[in-house]
């Protein structure tokens, strides 16, 4: 071992493509799986959350308006960058989740492959979920999926990277933008993922990532009128009904999630993609 003193990183929020501290000045200590201090994370406030929603809304037009092919390339680029940070992610996952290094490594590999899987969906979703409708009349009618808008995501508390990727990548793949509340106890891989996103071609504001107390932030996110859909993957079970009620205030879509945290290593399905799109049906007459 070298006796060199390492340079520690300050973990901050990721909002609008920048890395601010919480405007509240609050932080909270993050420990590894054995309780040893790892870092201080920013404890986001209600104002930080609202700034994040503003950034996500601002980024929605450009991101949802990009061609599906372009979004696919941009997301695949993220996978390329993740691959380059494989060791760093494995170390963070190992520390935070207490996984042995080989297991941590395979979690990271699965997360990268999952990102690739979702990257490939951008230009296929319309052909799988869309349709030409055989209406009984001289009309051409077709239906296409469109991104729902700004998606609030409460990331899974346990699976700090693979779980996070599994809930974030589908938001980006459909062309929506995200405000993510990272795992409260294991937020560090999320911040590192934000650093990857910041140096990728994903436009600023498409992903906004907050660290802090989930139970404190969740009601504000759920009740926010400019949030179109809510993924409660990481919501405290006892808080879910309350969050769903808050979402009802602006008919925010709420994804159905199971009670416990699922095994994220099993292959994904398109449930999240389906939940995050609106179907638009267009009619046009046919005739000379």
């Amino acid at each position: 071992m070298s006796d060199r003193v390492t340079v520690s990183k300050t973990y901050k929020l990721f909002v609008g493509g920048a890395f601010p501290r919480s405007e509240s000045g609050r932080t909270y200590p993050v420990s590894d799986s054995r309780g040893r201090f790892l870092a201080n994370a920013a404890q986001a406030s209600r104002k930080d959350l609202r700034e994040a929603v503003v950034a996500a809304r601002g980024a929605f037009g450009k991101w949802s308006g990009a061609t599906a092919y372009n979004r696919g390339q941009v997301l695949y680029r993220v996978a390329e960058l993740l691959e380059g940070r494989r060791e760093q992610f494995a170390a963070e996952v190992a520390a935070g989740e207490g996984a042995p290094s080989r297991r941590a490594q395979s979690i990271v590999d699965a997360a990268i492959d999952r990102w690739v899987w979702y990257a490939g969906w951008t230009d296929k979703l319309a052909t799988v979920l869309g349709a030409a409708n055989p209406v009984a009349g001289p009309y051409f009618s077709f239906s296409v999926p469109e991104p729902t808008g700004v998606v609030g995501v409460l990331a899974p508390p346990d699976s700090s990277l693979l779980g996070l990727v599994s809930v974030l990548a589908p938001v980006l793949a459909v062309g929506a933008t995200a405000v993510v509340v990272a795992s409260e106890d294991r937020p560090l891989p999320a911040i590192t993922l934000a650093e990857v996103l910041a140096t990728s071609d994903v436009p600023g504001g498409v992903v906004n990532l907050l660290t802090g107390h989930t139970a404190e932030l969740a009601p504000w996110l759920a009740a926010h009128a400019d949030v179109n859909a809510l993924d409660l993957a990481g919501a405290p079970v006892e808080q879910r009904a309350e969050l769903e009620r808050a979402a009802a205030g602006t008919v925010t879509r709420v994804l159905r999630v199971g009670r416990g945290e699922p095994d994220w290593t099993t292959g994904p399905d398109i449930g999240r993609l389906r939940a995050l799109v609106e179907t638009k049906t267009v009619w046009h007459p046919m005739g000379v």
Binding site: Y69, Q73, Y76, W117, G120, W121, K124
Partner: peptide, 18 residues
Amino acid sequence: SAHFFYHAGWADKLEYAG
């Protein structure tokens, strides 16, 4: 290039192709 990129994405999604 785009043709390879597009089809790469199908390789692990064939069960959705109908």
